[in-house]
Nucleic acid binder design. Sequence first.
RNA 1: GCGAGCGUAGCUCAGCGGCAGAGCACGCCCUUCACACGGGCGGGGUCACAGGUUCAAUCCCUGUCGCUCGCACCA
Length: 929
Amino acid sequence: MSKEQQFKPHPLGRSFEPETFESGIYRFWEENGCFDAKDACIPGQDPFCIVIPPPNITGVLHMGHALTNTIQDILVRWRRMKGDNTLWLPGTDHAGIATQIQVEKALAQEGKNSSGQPLSRHDIGREAFVERTWKWKDEHGGKIKEQLRRMGSSLDWKRERFTMDDGLSAAVREVFVRLYDEGLIYRGERIINWCTRCQTALSDLEVVPRDRKGNFWHIVYKVVGDDGKTLRRPDGTEEQIVIATTRPETLLGDTAVAVHPDDGRYTHLHGKQLQLPLLGRLIPLIADAYVDKEFGSGALKVTPAHDFNDYEIGKRHGLPIVSAMGKDGRITSAGGPYSGLRFTVARERVLQDLKEGGLLVRSEDHQHKVGVCQRCESVVEPVVSKQWFVKIQPLAGPAIKAVQDGRIVFTPQSWEKVYFEWMTNIRDWCISRQLWWGHQIPAWYCGRCQDVAVARTAPGKCPKCGAPGAEMRQDEDVLDTWFSSGLWPFSTLGWPGKTQALKTFYPTSIMETGFDIIFFWVARMIMMGIHFMGEVPFKKVYLHAMVRDEKGEKMSKSRGNVIDPLVVIDKHGADPLRFTLSAMSGQGRDVKLSLERVEGYRAFCNKLWNAVKFFHLQYEAAGSPDEPREGAGTWLQHHRVELLEPDKWILSRLQTLVARVEKGLAGFELNDSAQALYEFTWHELCDWYIEFSKLQIKDGVEERKETVITLHHVIETLLRLLHPFMPFVTEELWQSLPWKKSARPGGLVTLMLQPFPSSNGKLIQQDAEKTVCAIRTVVDAVRNFRGENSIAPKNSFPVKYVCKSSAASVFVRAYGHMIRDLAGISELVQVEDGSAAASGDSVVPLTQPPVELRISIKGLVNAEEETKRICKEIERIQSDLKHVRGKLAKESFVAKAPAELVQKERQREQELAQKISELEQSARRLGKG
RNA sequence: GCGAGCGUAGCUCAGCGGCAGAGCACGCCCUUCACACGGGCGGGGUCACAGGUUCAAUCCCUGUCGCUCGCACCA
């Protein structure tokens, strides 16, 4: 190669530097409409649609987002390249409580109100607060969209939706009204979860149990007779029941004490009255099978207003409901002297008073679970309150059935069981929230007749009494955020309108999300989708693992172990991060992310980069030829028989790769695809084919032509295969290739719209694979000799060889020059079979191909060292032989195992034994010399 | 308590009936003209433990231990 050629600038930089091209490429795609789906498919085209799990507008991109968006983008880019009319629909969620908390915080920091308190939403009023929140959304809610762009997400931004935009709000009202009309939404007074900090009702799902250290207090409840006086036992002591509780302050709301009906200790007291400590109210002793005889004293205080189980007991026995715990976090007037006290203070006072009254028997430490608010972590209190509910059973039934009969398939399938369990035990869904940020409930109350009107728009007059609209007051509550997300797969496509997009893309193809929101989101979409569309919202649910840190801990700000995807992208690029995430997205539960892995895949990008750079050098050295008229792929297929063996081999391997990658993509085993791509690129293309190609290029004009065409074809195909995983670097490299076609009539040249490769059976050539395998075996054997003896690469040496078959002779004659150059052999000399090895020769016996190598160790390595190497080899083979012989020695194996296998083992036994004997001879000879 | 998942090389993970694999880390040799984000060679594992099924078990079954995660909680 002349100096000029060597320094001729080629289009690629010296190494992989993602920061130089990523943002430009994304802009190129977006500006050219590469992400756009068509409302209608062209004939013969399939639709493919994924709706993004809408990130909260409060959110900033974290590794969970990075993982889910990588997976989705891979699937989407793959299907798009396959030719599907592909829609990946972006959007964000208004995230009711989360957002309101953020804006309230901002407000509080802004100043103080007239009474010196930090500003609250109540100081500025609902309208102003909602307006501010919209403003906040405009300012902060866009951040994550830019971050998704940096990940390379090929989202159709023109179709972006927001759960509170006009269309989706209309969908929410439509659903609410219809469910109400069908009797599936009702308003009623029930026990619900109440967050005293957020001042709102919560659904069961929004309450998370947390381990708390607490106490178990044992309190005396005295039994009184009909005269109102304490009953006395025959021995004169007071008749009483000791009750254990973790929440003594709730006794203010007790309306009964319950025992098990079969509990002999209390049978005589059934129907008697007890005196409620401190307040003195009389409450009955009731018998209910819910009570566990073995636990505590076997008696349970019943507080229907503040405990879900007690509420049920109360309903069964017609007990009154006494709400002692107020929504404001203070004891109500029902608490007598304790009213107005905060719950924590009330607890102290109650305990103190009990103690003074001799009613507190003892207290024990007690570990128990306390429900806290998912958003603010403060203790959630069950209270009885008037709220809106969805009657869920009628919706759950069809949703269960859809998964049972396979219309929806979960991957990993084990999640189906989790889904079934929750769905069959589902309770009515409390959907009203006492917040300001969200969809206001479309219900209006008549100020005149008190009737409620549920409607899509504000009623002009009361439908019942005809009072004017001005007297109708809209319900102040808003809906649970998940109510609108539950409609996402169809509301985003234009429902309740009958749009073409809806027709084309519903049901969507795949729902890809985290398992932590199966109940919150997946289940509700299934219920709503089936109910309103008459069809499941998606056919497949793929639930990915949770991203954790390298130690397996959840990433969180407080732990300080958060790996920010944007920092990783800044440092290494989006492609290495994406490849890492896909390579680790096995079907387990956790993805333990380590930065070392990312660095490894960055090196992979660099390797790929340099492989392409290598192609450019060769291409230019070959005089920058034109692509064969019929195209490189077709040319290779036509000339497949006369190609050189390494060319045939790499083309053959490429077909296997295509099949493997496709299989992984189709089965949600992206890690398999990623691994296959990595192995092929590094260990087949770079380690071997490129090395072969260097030799071929030296050989002559024809060989060089074949090689350049093969190299171009393999690299071009590989870039297409890799593209869904690493979109940026593949596009950048692909653009640099000399032979490429426009994918569109308009002439837009982009890799992302090229067809995805399909496996070509004609290019699979087993013989070539065997030949190359044999070449590698010989080269590896010499390299092993060299490496084990620490012989420098520049120190080349002659090797003699003996062929044990005529085929082997032919083989070495044909490929000896490749073996020579790849193994760093100065001269490869054939020796007649049967001739004895020279005394200073070390023998390397091979079986496939049947060749014996003889290396004169003189001047290379001393006999002792080489003998050590041979002994190690002998030991290794001996352990194999022992294993094989052990198998063959068992009669049962020979008799019952497949004959083919037995035959194979016998052959192996022979080969191994022979190898050992040859190596032993060699070692003996060297020892003598 | 019920259910699920996981225990494989120092680390992170593949494999899931027929000789234990990868990446990183480690040791040795190489600044060979795509790549030191590199090349070559190597060391390293009773596949958690105990039984069982099988000619054959890391893989299938049962149990034990350890670690996660759901669900339900006994107040």
